[in-house]
Amino acid sequence: MSSTRLLAATAPQQQEFEKANALFRQKQYTEAAGIYQRLVDEGFDQPELLINTGNAWYKANRTGLAVYSYEKALLADPFSKAAQHNLAIANQRVEGYVNELPQLFFQQWWTAIKYMHHPNGWATGAIIFCWLTVLGSILLLLRPTLQPTVVKSVTGVFGLLFAFYLFMGITTYVSATTHDNGIIMGNVVKVKSAPDQGSKDLFELHEGVKVQITDGTSEFCKIELPDGKTGWMSCGDIKKL
């Protein structure tokens, strides 16, 4: 359990966080989880807070919410060893858990590059390199005798970095705002062959299973599992990441 300070928290919010830590140490896990979750719902998304939330839900035997919290922590910090470890332990409780396929080496490289910055960080870098590119271009126009070869080379590098940061900013923003995964929250959920309650039952899913949402209606979501199984289920039984 982490006792770190909450970033940008008011004094009452920090006190609530410390109260939740104390409740956790006193083994009042449901009460601690409720306070942690309230802070998360207020917009605090520090990996440490999300891991604490997952730990409390896990101890309170709310496996679905524990898995959800650890998955959210990994969205905030994909390389968090604590979140990865705790998620693996929580998934051992999930009946019918299906392992995700491991990433290939180039996918691991892409993930490492993509999460070097949050979307705002990539956007800030793009703005900086954009202005540096503009400044270099202005220098070439106003001071053509100022070592033009060097200025052109440096300006070209700034231009490439601007394009790269802009591309990564757009990519990470789309990735962060596309909620196509979710965690099953119902104890036992029947997956249907069509978006209709009267359609044929295909299989059952249990609390804590992670699914990919590929399509949907106002009431039903089409889901896919890592092993390729697909079907329809009530969207109300899925907590989207």
Score class of each variant (00 low, 15 high):
98 V>Q: 06
98 V>C: 07
100 E>Q: 06
100 E>M: 12
101 L>W: 06
101 L>P: 09
101 L>E: 14
101 L>V: 08
103 Q>H: 10
103 Q>D: 11
104 L>F: 13
105 F>E: 13
107 Q>I: 02
109 W>E: 03
109 W>R: 06
110 W>I: 04
111 T>E: 11
113 I>Y: 13
113 I>R: 13
113 I>G: 10
113 I>C: 10
114 K>C: 12
115 Y>H: 15
115 Y>S: 12
115 Y>I: 07
116 M>R: 12
116 M>F: 11
120 N>W: 09
122 W>E: 07
123 A>Y: 05
125 G>R: 15
125 G>K: 14
127 I>Y: 03
127 I>G: 02
131 W>E: 05
134 V>F: 05
136 G>V: 03
137 S>R: 05
137 S>D: 07
138 I>T: 06
138 I>P: 01
139 L>N: 11
140 L>I: 06
140 L>H: 03
141 L>K: 12
144 P>K: 05
145 T>S: 15
147 Q>F: 13
148 P>L: 07
148 P>K: 02
149 T>L: 04
149 T>V: 10
149 T>H: 11
150 V>L: 12
151 V>G: 07
154 V>R: 04
156 G>L: 04
156 G>D: 05
158 F>G: 00
158 F>V: 04
159 G>C: 03
162 F>P: 06
164 F>Q: 05
164 F>T: 02
165 Y>K: 01
165 Y>S: 08
165 Y>M: 05
165 Y>A: 09
168 M>E: 00
169 G>T: 00
170 I>E: 03
171 T>C: 09
176 A>D: 15
176 A>T: 03
176 A>Y: 13
177 T>G: 12
179 H>W: 14
181 N>D: 12
181 N>Y: 13
182 G>K: 07
183 I>A: 00
183 I>W: 06
185 M>T: 03
187 N>Q: 14
189 V>Q: 07
190 K>T: 07
191 V>I: 11
191 V>W: 01
194 A>C: 01
195 P>D: 01
197 Q>E: 14
197 Q>L: 09
197 Q>A: 15
197 Q>R: 14
199 S>P: 10
203 F>K: 04
204 E>M: 07
204 E>F: 08
204 E>S: 13
206 H>G: 10
207 E>C: 11
210 K>F: 10
210 K>R: 13
211 V>K: 06
215 D>P: 06
216 G>A: 08
216 G>E: 06
216 G>V: 00
218 S>P: 00
219 E>A: 11
219 E>R: 11
223 I>P: 04
224 E>H: 00
